[in-house]
Nucleic acid binder design. Structure first.
Lengths: 224, 224
DNA sequence: CGTCTGAAATATGTATCCCAAATTTGCAGG
DNA sequence: CCTGCAAATTTGGGATACATATTTCAGACG
């Protein structure tokens, strides 16, 4: 069965994604007041899953709870984009250092495989190439965090930045930037295979700064 | 009124604190299976607040949800303590840099006040002195993160480390370490007041490494 | 005209019930 | 005695009902 359950194994997750997407897209404006009841009706579910979603989004900083019974969409600073890249550089650089020390043979093999996948589609000529690169890129970064063997770090990364944002920005890269990025991935994989934390960390920080530069060409103030 | 209600202004928060404390203390062993029903009965509340608490703790990495209907206390790596300090150094160092640029006059005044409070109780002679120092210390660190004006960073910090752990470790500090720590707080406040990101960041990183050294004297592998 | 007070409307927190899915148990067969 | 399968129990997700705290708004008073 491709679709095992109708709505069971979703529901709360759906509320979470929906509300978050509305905040990111601007459908829910910054500072707008939210109530569980109204969100329930809009989403067609009861308050229980909506509460879960609000808790999560509050914890992640998308929603703020003011004193008492007032809940609002958070206001995002103009330099949110800069912050995301700054924080990514800190955390992923650290993750790469740890990965160079802790990664298993399987981790290293998978990182090499993913960097090869990225290479094989660079420069991209078709939309599928873009998709493949994005997927492999995302898997690559996630694998490094996993290889760092730190559940705390994994949890942090999951909420540190919006993966979708990174994927979207890929389309704006020039051929030279894409080739550079593919080279970075290969280098990071090799640094981890060489068990060199300093190299791996430095390469990852370079990679993220280059991505920031490439992504920041047009809009300095994207949403969150 | 100093004491508004007996148990009203808590309940779900209470469940969260109680479960978390039991995990940290070891009353709930690593890998132990948890059920909402049993926790409800033990804590004398209904399942709803327990669910909230479990959500939160899962998100923070204290509890893991396995496939299906199995929920367990997470297993913590041996070097969890090291990781927490590493991550704190990264994030709080960054927060201090931003705070030096973004802090309001009120932020700066409050940071100075808090560092004075810490000074006035150092070295501590009574249990209340310890309590005051702990409270002021926690408020100080939180204020810096707030002053960084980054909701994302605030959210990250809230789950990056266990405040209770920091408080506990304070009792092990020597007089010299406590005086050094008080000096660090004052210096950080002044660096921010001087609007010097590099100074503030470096001072905070120094402070956290010193705290790590002081805290790590006895057990290298505390809980989380 | 502005401000304060209090009552109604509104929002969240908590308890309880129901349901679907998963885990455990127990029985039958090899 | 072990294995396999199905019934029974357990578990977590969702909906609803109720209690309590907060917000709002209108009207009275200065």
């Amino acid at each position: 069965m491709p679709e095992p359950q109708t709505t069971k194994l979703a529901a709360a997750e759906q509320a979470y994604r929906s509300i978050r997407a509305d905040i990111i897209s601007g459908a829910l404006a910054e500072g707008e007041r939210l109530t569980e009841e109204r969100l329930s009706q809009d989403l067609g579910v009861s308050r229980t899953p909506v509460r879960d979603a609000i808790r999560r989004l509050t914890h992640e900083g998308f929603i703020v709870r003011q004193s008492g019974y007032t809940t609002r969409v958070a206001r995002f600073p103009e330099d949110e984009m800069t912050q995301v890249f700054d924080i990514r550089q800190l955390l992923e650089g650290y993750a790469s250092e740890r990965a160079a020390k802790m990664a298993s043979a399987e981790d290293i093999a998978e990182l090499k495989r993913l960097s090869d996948v990225i290479w094989s589609h660079t420069p991209p000529t078709t939309p599928e190439d873009f998709t493949r690169i994005s997927e492999a890129n995302e898997a690559f970064h996630r694998r490094i965090v996993e290889a760092a063997r730190s559940p705390r770090l994994t949890a942090l990364m999951s909420m540190a930045f919006d993966v979708g944002m990174v994927v979207r920005t890929y389309r704006r890269y020039s051929t030279r930037e894409l080739e550079r990025s593919a080279g970075h991935h290969r280098e990071i994989a090799e640094a981890i295979a060489a068990r060199s934390p300093d190299w791996a960390g430095a390469a990852m920080r370079t990679h993220i700064r280059a991505a920031q530069s490439a992504a920041g060409k047009s809009d300095a103030a994207a949403k969150p």
